[in-house]
Amino acid sequence: MVIDQSHKRKFAVFYTACFLVSYAWLFFNHLLFHQLQPVFFLNRLDLTLNLFFVTGIQQAIKNNYGIQLLFDLLYLLLPLLTLGFINSRRGGIMAALHAVFNLVYALLLSSFTPLSIAGFAGWILLPWILVPSSAKGFYFMMHAMRYIFLLFFFSAGLWKIRTGALFHSGQMSAILVHQHAVYLADAPGNWFSRIIQYLIMHKNISYLLYLLVTLLELVFVAGFFTKKYDRWLAGFFVLFVLFDFVLMRINYFAWVAFLGCFWFSRHEEPGAEEIKT
């Protein structure tokens, strides 16, 4: 089947649904600017963040409740407007605005909260898929994002080889101690603590998990050469998200929106079928 405007609309609906779940998570965890009303920010070695800091926007957010509320409202409204204007002449402009605003919002929120900027990658990159008005443009943007996502995962696997962590048999036990220190200290008899303690004490079993996750990350390299296994890669990614949430208590749900790229990748490029025949 050839990609058309209906696929773009379906992608936009899926993206928006994921975004709203993510927004609800921020809301119920009291992490929106106007709820948190932060009192200090943290800089980091990020060129983009430091360029935004030149404007002094971080000080304005810290000191002004009205700006905090405005940012939170725009963060919610822009994806809805993007969906509303999809396949219309203003759709591309809305999507671009949404992407740029998400970049600003994510940079600032991650400098005021413990949230990692990496968790916002989907909201910064994926709206660009909705910018082109043609189905062909949608096809190319979607595939570009698909390659970028493959790169994220494959590079995470490569990093474990480069640093030598993959060859350190105590790595996963040490990660579990580090990740769950406060939980293990406060509730050592709890069922979850007992599972974690078991894994920490049985280094071979925990290392096996680390090895499997690294292999899973490296397997994403297949996506650079073929789209045949995209459903499998999507499945592996869902496993990764579940594993991270259950065992590590890390929330990677925001990346689920990238799965849209793997779902629609089986469809052909508009115009390509004419060339073939």
Binding site: A118, A121, L158
Partner: peptide
């Protein structure tokens, strides 16, 4: 990614627990 250190969002590094940790490392809790 080759030169670990500085980033420029949206170009980021995804190490995902690739730094070597040791089980006897001191953990600080509050």
């Amino acid at each position: 990614n080759y030169k670990w250190g500085l980033v420029a969002t949206p170009v980021l590094q995804y190490g995902m627990y690739s730094s070597i940790l040791h089980i006897n490392d001191t953990q600080t809790v509050y």
